[in-house]
Design a protein around this nucleic acid. Structure first.
Lengths: 201, 201
DNA sequence: CAGGCTTCTGTAACAGTGTTGCGATACGCT
DNA sequence: AGCGTATCGCAACACTGTTACAGAAGCCTG
């Protein structure tokens, strides 16, 4: 046997970087293998040796996005107030999305038509919710949140955060609105809606 | 002059029907003009006379989707309890999305790469929120909701509803979860979070 | 009823896409 | 040193959206 896996790592990174750049500046339509390869100074075949196919390349971006996302989520600590913690996670979510909108678009909206996330990537995405689940569980234990299935509260929180960010990135929100303030306010109202003390049960 | 606008209306409807069908059964990738025209028994050029381009055809589906959506939203009446009304609107939103998932995907997630909604279609989409705004305003007037900018509450409600439905349609929700029940519960918690009486202000 | 103008539609071409054989190259191991 | 294999570049295939160019079809005017 001879020459097992050389796989130019520099080229791999260059392709991924350029792919993200194309995605963010000109959208998914502009992400073509020929242009990508040409911009990176190589040929389309290199992409196939390095990644396998275009969906596989997108899958690499997908995991990259969720890795950054996971580290941001983990960096949000837990304090004394579960409601504040929940709001903090939501704010981190939005910051993450605004920091890499093009990654967000392939992570949560199917921006690249043929792409399906690999099982490993899907598992990584699922694991991203763990900090949220932990915060919810802590809030239930401390009696702050209603004693329901933690998954339900976590998904509810994920839903409002994801929905608001999607609407913002899609340009569906009315102009002139202070998005940041409205966002935080909505998150707080949502968290308080799950609060047990306010409703006396 | 001669032969002003004949524009076979039957063909137009046939194309739209088949386009929606292709979209729902095989996804956006399978929606090609050649196949669409072939299935409808005509040629690709007909699509260009009837609609203008592929994005314009998608725009027709987009408006179609929002028209159905608007009628569903309008059919949700207002009762005595603004919280129940808000939850009712959210349930109608989900039903609408589940009834036409393929339309939903082009209405809210950019499923077709090159497509941008026309100004008229965008205005129609904006108007869809009017019932929600009216319900929120009524709730503020009756003292049920906090006295903040109605747009903020409306967008918050839209956000959680849209987010949960997006997650559901994307398959991001954990298996084994009773989605309908969790959905309704989340909507109720959210609405109660905006309730003024519970928080004594 | 005939003619002509306009609108529409089908064929075929163009540029572009993802993907894949094929041959050549370059590299790591024996 | 040289063999063997992984990688890469070229070119082709089948497909996409779009459009130039005809031909056909219909409606209004005379």
């Amino acid at each position: 046997m001879a020459r097992p896996r050389t796989h130019d790592e520099a080229l791999r990174l260059r392709l991924l970087d350029r792919a993200g750049e194309l995605l963010s500046t000109e959208g998914p339509k502009a992400l073509s293998l020929r242009r990508l390869a040409s911009d990176a100074g190589t040929s389309t075949t290199a992409v196939y040796s390095l990644f396998g196919s275009k969906p596989d390349l997108v899958n690499a971006l997908y995991t990259e996005g969720f890795q950054r996302f996971e580290s941001r989520m983990k960096s949000v600590g837990r304090g004394a107030d579960p409601i504040a913690d929940l709001v903090g996670l939501g704010l981190a979510y939005r910051e993450s999305a605004l920091a890499d909108p093009h990654l967000y678009s392939i992570m949560f909206t199917k921006a690249v038509p043929g792409f399906e996330a690999s099982p490993e990537a899907t598992e990584l995405a699922r694991r991203t919710l763990d900090p949220l689940l932990a915060t919810v569980r802590a809030g239930i234990e401390s009696g702050t949140f209603s004693d329901v299935d933690p998954a339900v509260i976590a998904i509810s929180a994920w839903g409002i955060v994801h929905g608001l960010v999607s609407l913002e990135l899609n340009g569906n929100l009315p102009p002139g609105l202070d998005v940041g303030a409205a966002y935080e306010r909505a998150l707080r109202a949502h968290a308080e809606g799950w609060s047990a003390v306010d409703r006396g049960r």
